[in-house]
């Protein structure tokens, strides 16, 4: 819905994912099936609005995972179930559901937007996905239950930048587990901090992956969500409207796409 007026919805449940990430389950009052990777503008009345990708959509409920990084998100972390929030969306293009295999590469809070894709694939009984996920420390891993469930269905590789005594998996940034990628002909869906995406692309290109097979979900200040407020303009694109998912070869020549 291309309007600045949000609808009111209720938080059904809240829980901690990590020390600085909380998940919120809210009623979908909009009634539009979102595309995986799309986002909503969530609002705390009297505080402000933030663009957040949804993590899952089922049974008329939307899952959002929010990291406490700024003014509005800090107020989100004070909310409890039963509290009211504003919502409008879904916005952006999202990840395209395609016929072939998909390698998903996520960093930190980038997993929820991939989760919406994974959950849709599971619904379609498809297992031709491979997830590589990196977090700073074992304590920063989100969706631990989901990851366990997913491991039984398709290949999941998780790595952490810094391990601890509980961690027996790989230690190192996400590119250190790229040697586990077996599908060179797959599509690569990447989301995470910009520096992580930058190095991930660099590594994939070194491995001989075609530029046109790499897709990135970009992050910019997105106030309106549908391409009229101007904040997220990069080159000839508005990230909220034409993205947030961009095929790499279409944005690689826009010097500002990575900063």
């Amino acid at each position: 819905m291309n309007t600045l007026n949000s609808m009111e919805t209720v938080i059904i449940d809240v829980w901690d994912e990590t020390p600085d990430i909380k998940s919120f389950l809210v009623n979908d009052v909009i009634g539009v099936l979102p595309n995986p990777g799309q986002f909503y503008e969530l609002r705390i009345f009297g505080r402000g609005e933030i663009p957040i990708s949804y993590g899952n959509y089922y049974d008329g409920k939307l899952l959002f995972s929010i990291k406490n990084v700024g003014y509005v998100t800090s107020y989100f972390h004070r909310l409890r179930s039963g509290d009211k929030v504003g919502i409008r969306g879904p916005y952006g293009n999202g990840w395209e559901i395609h016929d072939g295999r998909t390698v998903l590469i996520g960093g930190g809070i980038g997993l929820p937007p991939l989760s919406s894709y994974i959950e849709r694939m599971i619904k379609m009984n498809r297992k031709d996905i491979h997830l590589l996920y990196g977090a700073r420390t074992p304590g920063d891993i989100v969706y631990k239950e989901k990851l366990k469930k997913w491991k039984d269905l398709f290949r999941v590789d998780v790595t952490v930048d810094r391990g601890d005594e509980t961690w027996d998996g790989n230690v190192g940034v996400v590119t250190t587990i790229f040697n586990r990628i077996e599908w060179k002909d797959a599509r690569f869906y990447i989301i995470g901090p910009e520096v992580m995406m930058k190095f991930a692309v660099k590594e994939l290109l070194k491995m001989g992956i075609d530029e046109g097979k790499i897709y990135l979900s970009m992050e910019r200040k997105m106030k309106c969500g549908y391409g009229i407020c101007g904040h997220c303009n990069i080159g000839r694109f508005y990230v909220c409207r034409d993205g947030p998912v961009f095929r790499y070869d279409l944005i690689k020549d826009i010097p500002e796409s990575f900063h």
Partner: peptide
């Protein structure tokens, strides 16, 4: 120049011109 910002206070939600 059409860019605008939205800022919210206790009882108001202000749309105003923004500047790149």
């Amino acid at each position: 120049c059409f860019c605008f910002d939205i800022n919210e206070g206790e009882n108001e939600r202000i749309m105003e011109w923004d500047s790149c």
